[in-house]
Design a protein around this nucleic acid. Structure first.
Lengths: 202, 202
DNA sequence: TGTACATCAGTGAACGCGCGTTCACTGATGTAC
DNA sequence: TGTACATCAGTGAACGCGCGTTCACTGATGTAC
């Protein structure tokens, strides 16, 4: 039984999911109208019923990729079980968030590239969830529990994000001449971030 | 007087310089055989006398871009005048190197992208100078002068590079929702790196 | 020192491909009466 | 409840462009004798 091709129902979201799959496998440059349409067994021109052009579709895929990253960070934070020491819990959540960021990039390097590619079209809406918000919320929790000195708070997002994003980029691009172990690099960087912010660390 | 087009003399290096110019203005994706040839007033097929294909030419341009970055770091280090406190001088040089890295990216965002784009062909030779070597040399100087604890030395390159590369990427891609001042961000990150490595800072 | 000739670095036309996009169309869907 | 019709979501062929690359060629260069 061959299903009728007509009136897919949710072609728009199906195309975006196919886009995520393709981008994760072959990188953002592999996002092509024909391939996307083929993946959903639909003619290329059908794509234009749902997106004005490829640039807008790509921008949506990039946004979804960033949201997946942010969700992975949230999930990692939630996986940390609370304990009697609220400050320590906040630190563990912060640590888990940073490690999730890098782990996402290592696990899906091309999707990570897709997430932060230079966009050719503006995204239709803000990221939800957003990695930035996840990070700043975690930093706020550190201040609230007294783990992070308030005068370090303004610069903290940049310090943390730069370290983690930089490590992710370096590992993804394999920029290091001597191929360091990812685990050791992640430990060193996360320890560095905590030292930079004056946090306790094990 | 129209000069004869024939036998350019140093077409190879002229093409690479044109490539650097084009990449700096329009990004790595703008490197095209025809445009390169046109920039040197030469036919497109002449390019193939000097490079097997565009991928190899692009890889060379990327290498030159990385070398320019490394040279900027070296220049910044040399600009720091030595003083009676050798350790303090090593710290100032280290700081200058990190700031030069970020400054290069902000000054030439598309060239920075070109330097670290995923290469489609292997580079013909190692970077010289190389950003990695400049960094590790500076860290060695910190150990020698007793400013950096030897047990922090193994993880130090990753900590420093990740922070600086991450900040550069973030500023270049304008990933920050609230557009922070570059200067403040750089101060915060460099201060963070020095705290992470246990260095003195002003 | 002058000349034949191999070699080298260019030319310019063309090929072939794959891409995004358009257009006239057709079948399916849902709604008004 | 059944039917006419507007609307919507598809089709498939084609357009047009720009790209990397190839090929037969030609003019310039340098070297052997």
């Amino acid at each position: 039984m061959t299903t009728p091709r007509y009136h897919h129902g949710n072609l728009r979201s199906a195309l975006l999911e196919a886009g995520l799959r393709i981008a994760a496998e072959a990188g953002p440059a592999a996002l092509q109208v024909r391939d996307l349409a083929k993946a959903e067994q639909v003619s290329a021109s059908a794509v234009y019923r749902h997106f004005p052009d490829l640039a807008h579709l790509s921008a949506e895929v990039a946004r979804l990729a960033r949201q997946q990253l942010a969700q992975a960070m949230l999930d990692a934070a939630e996986a940390e079980s609370p304990g009697p020491d609220a400050g320590w819990h906040a630190i563990r959540r912060f640590d888990a968030i940073g490690r999730a960021y890098v782990a996402f990039a290592v696990r899906s390097p091309r999707l990570f590239d897709t997430a932060f590619q230079t966009p050719e079209a503006p995204p239709s809406c803000d990221d939800a969830p957003s990695a930035w918000t996840v990070l700043t919320d975690a930093l706020d929790a550190l201040v609230t529990t007294g783990e992070l000195a308030p005068d370090l708070r303004p610069g903290a997002p940049m310090v943390a994000w730069a370290a983690v994003h930089g490590l992710a980029s370096i590992l993804v691009r394999q920029m290091v001449p001597e191929p360091a172990e990812e685990r050791a690099a992640m430990d060193a960087v996360m320890r560095g971030v905590k030292r930079a912010l004056g946090l306790r660390h094990a």
